[in-house]
Amino acid sequence: MSAVLEIRGLDKRFGGIVVADAIDLTLSAGRVVGLIGPNGAGKTSLFNLVSGIFPADAGTITLDGERIDRLKTHRRAARGLSRTWQNLRLFPSLSVLDNLMVGPRHYPGEKLWRLAFDRGGVRRREAETRRRALDVLERTGLAAVAKTRAADLTFGQQKLVGVARALMNESRCLLLDEPMAGVEGHAYETMQRVVRDVAASGVAVCVVEHNVAFIRDLCDEGVFMFAGKVLARGPVADLIADPRLTELYFGT
C-alpha cells in the first residue's frame, strides 16, 4: 500500500482564525479516508490547501513523492490531483457529456497550435474521450441525461456529474467534498459503488462527509478534525463510538 498524497505539518491561519494546525495526513493508493468533524473544523479548508486554492503558511504536500505545495492549482491537478466541490461548480452552459469532456487533465484539443497542425490527432482524441465519457456516464447511471444541460438536473444527479467529471481526470488522488449532501435514494448506492470502484482501481480517495452512515460503510479509515487539528484517526466505527469526539461534534 503506497502513499500517494503526503501532508506534513500543514499550517494555515486567516488572521486569528486557525484553519489548519500542524496537519499530518497520508492518503494511500486504493484506500478511502473519511474526514469527519463539525462545521468549521477545517475539512474543506484542507481540501482547498491541498488543491492550491490558497497557499499554506507552512508545511509540505507531496504527490507521488514530488512536492506540489508551491504549485498553482492547475499544475497540481495536472500532476494527478482532482477534487469535487461542496457547491458543485459544474459548467452550467455545457451538457452533462461536455462537462465530462472537459475533465481529462491533458487535452490536445485545447492547444491552438494543435488545432491548426494536428487536426487528425485532436479528432482521434476527441472520439476516444467521448467513448470514455459515455462509459463513465454509464457507470454513474447518467447515460440517459448525457445531452441534458448540467444545470437542469436534480441536485443528486448534479453531485454525480461532479464526481464523474473528476473521474475523467484519471487522477492519482481524488478529494470528494460532501458528495452525499442532498443526495437521496438511488443515487446513494450509485455514489457508494462509484467511489469504491475508483479506490479499487488504485486511486487514493479522501471524503469529507456529514452522512455518518455513508462514511462508515465506505471508508477504510476515519480522521476526526476539530479547529484545524487532526484529533484522532482509526476505524470510523471507533471514532463514532468515542464519547469525547461525539461531544465535540455535537457541541453538547
Binding site: T73, H74, A78, S93, G109, N169
Partner: peptide
C-alpha cells in the same frame, strides 16, 4: 467558428462558467 465550436470553444465555455473548477481540472486558464 472552428475554434468556438470545437474542443477549444468547449473549454473556453467551461472557463467562462467557472474558472476555479476549470483550473482544478488541470487547465491553465
Amino acid at each position: 467558428r472552428s475554434i468556438a465550436h470545437g474542443p477549444y470553444g468547449r473549454a473556453l465555455s467551461a472557463m467562462r462558467d467557472d474558472e476555479l473548477a476549470f483550473a482544478a481540472l488541470g487547465r491553465n486558464a
